[in-house]
Amino acid sequence: MSFIRKLKSYILKKVQIAGLKILGNIEWVWPKYRIPYTRNINVADNLYFKNPFMISGTYSYKLLKTIILLNERLNSKTPFSLVRLGDSEMLFLNGKMVGNIVKRSFLNNDISRYNLEHYREKTNENDFICIPDNYSLNRFLSDMKFSKDLSISTENIYQLIATKIFFNQLKSKKIGIIGAKEKVDIIKSLVKYKKYREYVNIDNIVEYIGVPQKGASTDHEKTQRMIEDQMTGDADIYLVGMSVAKLVIQPSLRDKYQKSFIDIGVGIDAMAGVIPNSKSYFGNWINFRIKDYDYSNINFFQYQKYLKKNVENIYTLNENERDDKEAN
Results as ranks from 00 to 15, higher is better:
N297Q: 07
K122G: 02
G210M: 05
N94E: 06
Q159M: 08
D292P: 07
R322Q: 15
I237Q: 02
F261W: 03
A180S: 12
N201A: 14
L160S: 12
S76V: 04
T154I: 12
T218Q: 15
M90P: 03
I209Y: 09
I26C: 12
G86L: 05
Y119L: 03
L69E: 15
R225P: 04
R34L: 14
Y10Q: 14
K214Q: 11
N287Y: 13
I129E: 01
Y208P: 08
S142C: 13
S142M: 11
K325G: 10
Q302H: 13
L160I: 09
D263C: 03
Y238Q: 04
M54C: 15
N71K: 15
T38R: 05
I11Y: 09
K13H: 11
N75L: 08
G210F: 11
V274A: 06
R34Y: 14
N156H: 00
Q159Y: 00
S172A: 13
I11T: 04
E321N: 11
T163Q: 08
W28N: 12
D292G: 07
S88P: 00
K183Q: 07
V15E: 07
I177A: 04
I177V: 13
A235V: 10
L7Y: 04
E221Q: 11
N126S: 11
A327E: 08
D185P: 12
K174I: 06
I131D: 01
Y315N: 08
S280A: 15
C130I: 04
Y135A: 03
I67E: 12
K62F: 06
L141C: 08
K145P: 07
E72D: 15
Y306G: 08
T38C: 07
E221L: 15
Y59N: 13
N124M: 06
S189D: 14
M54I: 15
I26G: 10
P31W: 05
D127L: 04
N115H: 09
N156G: 02
F301L: 14
S81H: 00
V248F: 07
S88D: 10
K188Q: 15
I55W: 08
A245H: 01
A327F: 15
F167P: 07
N25D: 11
G179L: 05
M97H: 03
N75F: 05
I227E: 01
N100D: 09
G176H: 09
Y196W: 11
L69T: 15
I11V: 11
S217K: 00
R39Y: 09
L239N: 10
K8W: 07
N94F: 04
D143A: 12
